[in-house]
């Protein structure tokens, strides 16, 4: 098994295959990820409606999948994980339902109150009808994720696996994305 592409997004810096491609000095995650989206010229009409977690997942996954010819034909499984689930958008949603006399849950927020929606957005953008899983773990455990990916590859459940750690919680965010395969795509 080998890592063919990688992307890391954290602390205002984006690395692709180990090389810095974007830098942002502000603190605001959403402003940062929006800037990366524009700089990378990613095209997904729903992007600005998505929550932070899905935005991070979509940007990181797109940077890698855009390097692959016809990703929808490549049988690419998605194995994502994080530690805060979708707490960021859960908080926003909770605010809209906290006051019984002013109870107006926002559908646009509510639809993102599951972490695996992030996987769904990537699957929709790239028309992937593949194996997928989103794990909520205490901390980043690359060995676990890679072991899971290896199992999928060995069992021929997928030809490639996009492994990702996508964490967003208030000001803290971190994305690690690796495309792994038995051979070069």
């Amino acid at each position: 098994m080998q890592i063919t592409h990688s992307c890391e997004i954290a602390k205002g810096i984006v690395l692709f295959n180990g090389e810095q491609v974007n830098e942002y000095t502000g603190q605001d995650f959403v402003a940062f990820i929006n800037e990366v989206y524009r700089a990378q010229k990613l095209n997904y009409p729903k992007f600005f409606k998505m929550d932070g977690l899905s935005k991070l997942a979509l940007v990181g996954a797109s940077m890698i999948l855009d390097q692959i010819d016809a990703p929808s034909d490549k049988d690419i499984a998605l194995v994502f994980a994080n530690s805060s689930s979708c707490i960021d958008i859960d908080r926003v949603h909770q605010k809209t339902i906290a006051d019984p006399s002013n109870f107006y849950p926002s559908p646009a927020n509510f639809v993102y109150t599951l972490p695996n929606i992030a996987i769904g957005e990537v699957s929709i953008k790239y028309q992937l009808k593949s194996e997928s899983a989103f794990f909520v773990c205490e901390r980043y455990d690359q060995n676990f994720l890679m072991r899971y990916a290896r199992t999928l590859l060995n069992q021929k459940q997928a030809k490639f696996v996009l492994v990702a750690w996508v964490e967003v919680n208030k000001l803290n965010y971190e994305g690690k994305f690796f495309l792994v395969s038995q051979s070069k795509p």
Partner: peptide, 14 residues
């Protein structure tokens, strides 16, 4: 889209 439609329905009420 359909989610926006729901958002508009909430906005009309709120």
């Amino acid at each position: 889209d359909s989610i926006d439609a729901l958002e508009l329905i909430v906005m009309m009420d709120r």
